[in-house]
Simulated assay, not measured.
Amino acid sequence: MLSRRLFLKSTGLIGCSAAAHPILSSIAFASAPGENRLVVIILRGAMDGLDVFQPYGDPRLRKLRKTLSAGPKNGALDLDGFFAMHPRLEPLMPLWQAGELAFVPAVSTPYRDKRSHFDGQDMLEAGTGTDIDLRNQRDGWLNRLLQQMPGLRSETAYSVGLSDMRILDGPAPAKSWAPEAEFDLGPQAQRLLERVYHDDPLFRAAGGQAMEIAAEGIGRTVADAGPSRDVRALAKFAADRLNDQTRIATFSISGWDSHARQPQVLGRALDRLADAVLTLKQGLGANWSQTTVLAMTEFGRTVAENGSGGTDHGTGGAMLMAGGAVRGGRVVGRWPGLAEGDLYAGRDLMPMRDIRAYAAWALRDLYGLSRDALEQAVFPGLDMQDNPRILA
């Protein structure tokens, strides 16, 4: 029997988005010319970049975070003598050593002070510069990228999961598949769906893989499916598509909102992120060498821990980059410091650069878009500044 709805929809129909829920995730795709691949992972819930990439060389860190572990003495993995990577990302250490993993330590969107997950994620995915732009801009920056690429085929663009991916919303055609919390198809229902898909060359394979993803645990509870089984299935599905005609994929990983019990909350989320990246690498095989992965979050968290063993909504955060096309094994960008006078609003990590600039330079180097198109159409109002040269 069919225990919940299964439906296909266009990205013009905006579904519910639970901004920081640990279960929900989405995936979307688009075809693009050439061999370069781009994967954008939205980390919903505001990842604490100061815990993921720990600036243990800054003497103020231990004063601000007395119980949250930091640095190699507490199990973190030293990267360069100043930053250490959270121990739950140890599976990604070989990528760092191979030059296929990098990060930016102090970035954010232009979103400031209100610290709403929903608004922050909307601005990140819309790629706008102000709240006014956000209200007027209904499409996402990956969709606007598609609109700027002549000859691009986007008929395979779609999303899988419960939360809407605004990043791909817009006039460029895209579709999505969204199960509910449980997906259980009996033989009769499966035969019905197979008949529906059979004569549609676009969705025949897509529908089959979507059902396969559901069988792997998409939409099930963490207890039923395991802590990262759903993310591995999404990443495997993305890799399969990227090995075929797809060149741009985006999906989300939730569960980063760590107001309390941060070691447990963040640890689970990092396990899922590491599994997603490694599943992409394994699934892509030789195509990993032409792949760039950008993992982005809506904002960072406070530099000081709170009384509940966690951190609250902040401003500056971190961005992770991976892939065989990335110039990794290094920290990209500048460090603002944690002294009181260096903080934003006296409480948050000071952003040193607009996170959109790194995405824009990746798009320029991957797909050859002009700077004018990126600064005016894809990311309106952006000043890209100098090229950080994140690609090899």
Rank of each mutant, 00 (worst) to 15 (best):
R112G: 10
R112M: 14
D113G: 15
S116I: 15
S116Y: 06
H117V: 15
F118D: 09
D119G: 13
D122S: 11
E125D: 04
E125K: 01
E125Q: 05
T128I: 04
T128P: 02
T128D: 00
G129T: 10
T130C: 05
I132M: 04
I132R: 00
L134S: 02
L134G: 01
L134A: 07
R135K: 12
N136G: 06
N136T: 13
G140H: 13
G140T: 10
L142H: 00
R144I: 00
L145G: 00
L146K: 04
Q147I: 00
Q147D: 06
Q148E: 05
P150S: 04
P150K: 04
G151F: 00
G151T: 01
L152Q: 10
L152P: 05
L152V: 11
S154Y: 05
E155H: 13
T156P: 07
A157S: 12
A157G: 15
S159E: 12
V160G: 03
L162G: 09
D164E: 15
I167T: 12
L168F: 10
L168T: 14
L168E: 11
G170M: 07
A174S: 15
A174W: 06
K175G: 12
K175I: 05
A181W: 01
E182A: 07
E182I: 13
D184Y: 13
G186F: 04
